[in-house]
């Protein structure tokens, strides 16, 4: 039977899962919006973030240092990948970048296997505190995850609307050539966006680590969910990504309370329904430049 307690903890659980989805999908969505690439390698930075968090936590005993280190390493890795690989393929079709980034993802998984092995490892939750919300005990850590995602969303919004570099990025999402025509070096914007995306994916991995098991292929397991979030929200839309991440989070969480296999199947059905009505997702723009 579904009790109010179960419902409240289900909603909180869904919000925290949705937060992780959001942090991961926002990178993919931004990269598509600006550079017109499908960057599957974001899932590699997610795995890197989680694995670094595991190791640093093991060494220092503090998971938050791990999350920070994971973010930093993920940002570095994404910077290297952008400079060495993506720089050469921006001009080409988005599906081309998808194949290439799949190669990066698989190759990266190989590297992670080399360093960390294939055995799934747990990461301790940094705080076991519970707070009571309407009489339901809720783990504080999940609330922290939700808060961090909210801060990131506000931060990205402020960055894009209040800083000149953010405005340039918004302008370049509309039209890259016109931004270049003004005398702005767009390739720097690309690099910056890619690093931000990579760091956020790393953050998602680090935050997710205590909630699941850390292993090399964890990125592949997230792949379908992140895809569904981005597709339902519409590629390139930040607002759409947020909305659909929250919806999918709830569907996964509440769905599994009702009937466990729903957690995996329901998002897919929702995606098909959305695509049936609008082939470019809820907030995706129908025009496709370049």
């Amino acid at each position: 039977m579904i009790t109010p307690q179960l419902l409240i903890s289900g909603v909180i659980f869904g919000l925290s899962i949705g937060s992780i989805y959001f942090l991961l999908a926002i990178g993919l969505s931004l990269c598509f919006g600006l550079m017109r690439i499908i960057s599957l390698d974001q899932l590699l930075y997610y795995s890197i973030g989680a694995n670094i968090t595991y190791s640093v936590n093991l060494l220092s005993g503090n998971m938050w240092w791990g999350v920070l280190a994971g973010m930093a390493v993920a940002a570095l890795a994404s910077f290297a990948v952008e400079r060495v690989i993506f720089l050469r393929i921006y001009a080409r079709d988005p599906t081309f970048s998808m194949i290439t980034s799949f190669g990066i993802l698989i190759g990266g998984i190989g590297i992670i296997k080399y360093f960390w092995g294939v055995v799934p490892r747990p990461v301790e939750v940094p705080t076991l505190l519970q707070v009571s919300i309407f009489g339901t005990e809720v783990p504080v850590y999940r609330l922290i995850v939700i808060a961090i995602a909210a801060v990131v969303y506000i931060g990205i919004w402020l960055f894009l609307h209040r800083t000149i570099v953010g405005k340039a990025i918004r302008a370049a999402i509309e039209d890259v050539e016109h931004v270049e025509g003004l005398g702005i070096n767009v390739s720097r914007l690309f690099t910056l966006t890619f690093i931000i995306a990579g760091a956020l994916s790393g953050l998602a991995g680090g935050l997710h680590a205590p909630l699941i098991m850390v292993d090399p292929t964890m990125g592949l397991e997230m792949l379908a969910f992140v895809f569904m979030v981005v597709i339902i929200g519409g590629l390139g839309s930040i607002k759409g990504t947020l909305v659909s991440a929250l919806v999918i989070g709830q569907v996964v969480s509440l769905g599994s309370i009702i009937y466990a296999p729903m957690a995996q199947m329901a998002p897919f059905v929702i995606m098909l329904l959305v695509l049936l009505i609008k082939p470019t997702g809820l907030y995706g723009s129908p025009v496709f430049k370049r």
Partner: peptide
């Protein structure tokens, strides 16, 4: 380590 190899091969072919 098959993943490592095939990943880099794929990137190499694409580039």
């Amino acid at each position: 380590n098959w993943e490592l190899f095939i990943g880099f091969l794929l990137v190499f072919i694409m580039l």
